[in-house]
Write a protein that binds this DNA or RNA. Structure first.
Lengths: 135, 135
DNA sequence: GTAGAAGTTAACATCGGTGTCAGTTTCAAG
DNA sequence: CTTGAAACTGACACCGATGTTAACTTCTAC
């Protein structure tokens, strides 16, 4: 498929797809005229790349990681070097910590959102019971 | 406490603490000489701010959010406007999606890490059974 | 009082993925 | 062939939290 279709199906801009290729994250065939031609599996790969970016990995690390992960495409799947394994373990721990933080922030947001639609307890207790007995 | 101590206790650089104040996220008293003087609760607040940054919120939105969240300090806690609530709900949904993505990426990393320490199954099945029967 | 640690302001740099514009070329359909 | 959509390359801009440096002031302990 061509870059426009891949962009549409993944939600990733053409600009980014070209950037991924430049960084060695994505390989594309070429038509005789020089247009990129992507295989079907590129869709999954692009989504994976996006997820890894979202997880805070940099393109260089992703580039080293990609050949080691066997996705559905069943590629050769290299073995990660001890050095890379150590780096990835650190990344994974960082991601774990980030998930914990995200959960905390999400709860904070929920709290504020819920408080905004509560009936108004100005000087009421923390419970959800109806407000102070009218005088 | 002074900025150095706050930085040490929160793990946030002095630079960032001053930036937080500039953005209206953090209030500090001043000594007669102009040095910042933080209350004890600043520690919790800074950690919250860091979490919200990690969650992808921008300083401006955090600045609007902060007066609406009642933390342990039991501040007045304003009520969020409908507009803000809508924005925060969007942020929360985004955070939820991000958590899902993070979990996916973490699993990918675990996969690669584990594969690197596996016994070697070159042409073996997907199961963990001992390799091919010797000839 | 004095020295050195710690704090202050201001300005500039960085990082890296992405947006955008410009000028050219290719593709596909009439 | 022609024409308009789509793709190509290359360059520049941006965002925004944080690092860093510089020149100066305040605090603290002797």
């Amino acid at each position: 498929m061509r870059i426009g279709e891949l962009a549409g199906r993944t939600g990733v801009s053409e600009r980014s797809l070209r950037y991924y290729e430049q960084q060695g994250l994505l390989v594309a065939g070429r038509t005789p005229g020089g247009h990129r031609d992507y295989p079907e599996q590129a869709v999954d790969r692009v989504i994976r790349i996006q997820e890894l970016f979202a997880a805070g990995l940099h393109s260089r690390k992703i580039a080293r990681l990609l050949p080691c992960m066997r996705d559905a495409d069943g590629g050769p799947s290299e073995r990660a070097t001890p050095r890379l394994v150590a780096e990835l373990a650190a990344e994974r721990d960082r991601i774990d910590r980030m998930m914990t933080q995200l959960a905390g922030s999400r709860d904070v947001l929920d709290d504020v959102i819920n408080a905004a639609s509560e009936p108004d307890r100005r000087a009421a207790g923390a419970d959800g019971a109806p407000g102070e007995p009218a005088a």
